[in-house]
């Protein structure tokens, strides 16, 4: 380990000396590589970067990053990371989590971190299965999923991470897929630039327990019809020949052929919309009825938790100077015994 200048870093500089122990074919490998590329391209200072995780396959991530890292306990990474950020707001803090870790055991911390808008980048590897415990259904598994703990099919209705995040007042929310590496890099870079909580859901393939869960979005022949890339200020258009669009019909979204409707009918994506209603509608677009949106759903600016925390401290000090113990001790009614 040696001190490194914050610039001039390469992808290799972000690889730790630990052997990566994910299964062959796991989507985690791609996410690790893309994030290392993004940080290198950003010229990130490895000494000021911290990765925090909980429990699960994805949560081994910090061990593979040549940064500071903290492998916490199940579901609690956002809380640990909040403590890190409060103690030192200058650090660049990332949370790596999975669908079980963030949404099941850690659901409460996930919600409250988002609403507080703590300056954390939260990357959720969603493989719709419990991997590390060997294949039980997760809170994002589809209804009816047959697993070792649901041999007759899961009777739980799944949770949709982006809907939940928007409901929890997140200020930045995006989705990418492990195999589309360029787009994944783009989304992670956007997250890295956001001030406040940036939440990224990555569709991640679990080769062992839930292979092909996202085949609709990765299959070369089908994906153009099943995925829609969000671009700020652009109409929602998809399809092999960009022949399909999305418009509002009354209260409902519908897929329309772009050449059969006036161009103005199509929804223009506005990631900065202060009203998250449209972003929520987009989050409800699910295969097979709709193409699933990829990209940045929302990117809003709101006061950031650690800024507000420090502002209150600075305000208290501006008012009465840095605290003096002698004055603290003698506050209130005192009396003297000779």
């Amino acid at each position: 380990m040696s001190a490194t200048p914050p610039t001039g870093v390469t992808v290799k500089d972000f690889k730790s000396d630990q052997q990566v122990k994910w299964c062959p074919g796991c989507g985690d490998h791609s996410i690790l590589t893309q994030l290392q590329k993004v940080l290198a391209a950003n010229g990130a200072d490895r000494d000021r970067t911290v990765f925090v995780s909980g429990i699960g396959c994805s949560s081994r991530f910090p061990y593979y990053m040549e940064t500071y890292g903290f492998h916490g306990i199940h579901g609690r990474a956002p809380a640990v990371a909040t403590g890190v950020k409060c103690a030192n707001p200058e650090l660049d803090v990332w949370v790596v989590t999975g669908d079980g870790d963030a949404l099941s055991i850690g659901g409460n911390h996930f919600l409250h971190t988002l609403r507080r808008n703590v300056g954390l980048k939260v990357v959720l590897f969603n493989n719709r299965i419990y991997g590390l415990t060997k294949g039980q259904y997760s809170p994002t598994s589809e209804f009816g999923t047959r697993t070792r703990s649901s041999p007759q099919g899961s009777i739980d209705h799944p949770m949709h991470p982006i809907s939940v995040a928007i409901g929890a007042e997140v200020t930045f929310v995006a989705r990418a897929i492990d195999t589309d590496v360029q787009h994944l890099q783009y989304v992670l870079k956007r997250a890295s630039e956001h001030r406040g909580t940036a939440f990224v859901e990555v569709y991640q393939n679990c080769q062992v327990f839930n292979p092909g869960a996202f085949g609709f979005a990765t299959d070369r022949t089908a994906k153009a019809d099943n995925v829609l890339y969000l671009e700020h200020g652009q109409p929602l258009i998809f399809g092999k020949n960009r022949e399909k669009g999305i418009r509002l019909n009354g209260d409902l979204l519908e897929v329309v052929p772009v050449d059969k409707v006036p161009r103005d009918d199509l929804i223009i994506h506005d990631e900065r919309n202060p009203d998250p209603s449209m972003a929520f509608r987009l989050a409800r677009m699910h295969y097979p009825d709709f193409p699933e949106p990829m990209g940045v759903f929302l990117a809003q600016q709101k006061p950031v938790y650690e800024d507000l925390l420090m502002e209150q401290i600075h305000a208290a000090r501006a008012k009465s100077g840095p605290g003096q113990l002698a004055a603290l001790f003698a506050a209130g009614e005192t009396w003297t015994v000779e």
Partner: peptide, 8 residues
């Protein structure tokens, strides 16, 4: 230069 990873 003291980058390290700890955990449970």
């Amino acid at each position: 230069g003291l980058r390290h990873r700890i955990g449970g």
